[in-house]
Design a protein around this nucleic acid. Structure first.
Lengths: 160, 160
DNA sequence: CGCAAATAAGCAATAAACTAGCATTTTGCC
DNA sequence: GGCAAAATGCTAGTTTATTGCTTATTTGCG
């Protein structure tokens, strides 16, 4: 694949981040090239894995998911086997929307979505705290969402 | 708009979550109706705000964003004015990808992305800790991503 | 239950977009 | 400067999006 991204590639990524359903024709117009090479570039970016996928953001509240919460988990043992075992468990939990292993006082941070508080608490008590090797669990219920741009800040040169 | 979502609407949302760039024809085929009513349903879902938008997920690492970290901030004062002031600041910081106000020991959780560790540390020292009303700041660098499905778990009936 | 109104689906036709093939231009390197 | 590789733009055929209209289905009420 291509070694380095040129400015048109960056523009393409920027536009696609903002609107993942833009037509290729419109995308081409915005970045200043004709449609065929634009489509080829997008395909190449997908092929290279730079584009991980296309998603639709939904309004959880309206869909009946009242609760969003962060769960921080610390484990007793952190051998690679222990970590992998816990990760496998995390992947199985449908309430967990995103999860990272982190450095610091806790080992994992998870963002969870649940239908209501009861469902969430059941999840914590029944599933999380009772999981093998879990040492401590701390939860933080979200009160409101300030920002949600699951995107890379492509056009902020001051941080490049 | 429509009072209640029927099973076809749910299927539409589920399919769109998984692939935000699916064609309407293919979407219609998957949910078992013809293309025009399918498109009308999607438009109605957008109109109602159930669909918040379409995004493209990028590979931050490949794009040169080495660091993803969680930042937890506690404020001195939590009057509504103080909170709104801090939120306005958060929205201005391009490194912050998502942020929630939470209950518990800290007031805000932010997921941040930066080009490198130095950029991130500068951000914390120069921007976050020096912001008015900030009491304490704790950071957790992510070591690896376990899961990233910024989606609602639509087809897990056991949690409905 | 049965009718009427409202709602949604499907069909057909048109406009727009996607995409492959090919000629041309640009880029990179000797 | 000159060649080879890579990328672009054009053209055209196919697929998709979109709209208007008709038919079918559902909903609400007597």
């Amino acid at each position: 694949m291509k070694a380095r991204l040129d400015s048109i590639d960056w523009q393409i990524l920027k536009e696609l981040q903002g609107d993942g359903r833009i037509t290729n024709v419109e995308l081409a117009r915005r970045v200043g090239i004709s449609a065929p090479p634009c489509l080829r570039r997008v395909r190449a970016l997908e092929e290279a894995g730079l584009i991980r996928g296309y998603r639709t953001l939904l309004d959880e509240k309206q869909l009946g998911y009242e609760v969003t919460a962060f769960v921080m988990v610390g484990l007793h043992n952190q051998t690679e086997n222990d970590l992998v075992a816990f990760e496998a468990q995390v992947k199985e939990w449908p309430l967990v929307r995103e999860s990272y292993m982190v450095s610091g006082e806790v080992d994992f941070i998870m963002r969870c979505t649940a239908k209501d508080l009861e469902t969430f608490q059941n999840f914590i008590i029944r599933d999380v705290t009772s999981t093998k090797n879990v040492d401590h669990v701390r939860t933080a219920l979200t009160i409101r969402r300030i920002k949600d741009e699951p995107n890379v800040p492509i056009d902020k040169p001051e941080y490049f």
